[in-house]
């Protein structure tokens, strides 16, 4: 997994609550057996007309935001299905960080498996960054994972919380399976105990 330590980039504003995984990546793009190549279909139905041409007022189609690497979004981002195609599409587009007041649990977890940092901030701070983002390409947002801070275009800095283990994995680009394999004896011990206590399992 790609490491995430810090990021300085253009933030795209999406001031809409409950952006769901069907919006992020519609189901017709789930028919792939690969993880790559989904960025072109990120937000597909909001981004393209039926004939495939771009919808010009959609934020990621606007010249200022075509190279956005941060998304500032409305409450409850990523609700809906468990499809990891959603973070795959986001990462493949080049977005490495999503800022909101809240995320759906499964989406939130999926981000960390794909080198994406989801940042939870209080409403007023998210709103301030949303305003920054609306200023276009000149408004860069800086993120430092080590110190857990976001700095807006005007220099205002906000602290964010995240689980220490998730932070450690993201900063070091660690593979979960590799980490768990180091504890495989515990799993074996658990299985042996269960074979006695709950043999029907």
């Amino acid at each position: 997994m790609e490491k995430f330590t810090s990021l300085s980039g253009i933030a795209a504003p999406m001031d809409l609550v409950n952006i769901d995984t069907d919006m992020i990546i519609p189901k017709q793009f789930l028919k792939t057996i690969k993880r790559s190549g989904l960025g072109v279909n990120l937000f597909d139905e909001m981004r393209y007309n039926l004939d495939g041409s771009e919808i010009s007022d959609f934020v990621l189609n606007q010249p200022a935001y075509r190279d956005a690497s941060i998304l500032v979004a409305g409450d409850n981002f990523g609700c809906g299905s468990s499809r990891e195609h959603a973070p795959w599409a986001i990462a493949d587009f080049g977005i490495r960080c999503v800022i909101s007041t809240s995320f759906a649990d499964i989406f939130y977890n999926n981000c960390f498996k794909n080198g994406i940092l989801p940042i939870v901030l209080p409403e007023d701070q998210r709103d301030a960054l949303m305003k920054d983002a609306e200023n276009g390409a000149n408004a860069r947002i800086e993120i430092d994972l080590e110190t857990q801070t976001v700095t807006g275009a005007g220099g205002e800095t906000y602290h964010f919380e995240l689980d220490a283990f998730k932070k450690h994995c993201l900063m070091n680009g660690l593979d979960d399976i590799g980490l768990t394999m180091e504890k495989v004896t515990y799993i074996g011990t658990f299985e042996a105990a269960t074979a006695t206590s709950r043999p029907w399992v």
Binding site: R35, S81, S82, R83, E84, P87, I106, N109, N110, K113, N114, D176, I177, T180, M181, V184, I187
Partner: peptide, 13 residues
């Protein structure tokens, strides 16, 4: 529900 990375994690561990 879990994502695909977690599916792989459960398959393996």
């Amino acid at each position: 529900g879990i994502g695909t990375s977690e599916v792989e994690h459960v398959l393996a561990t």
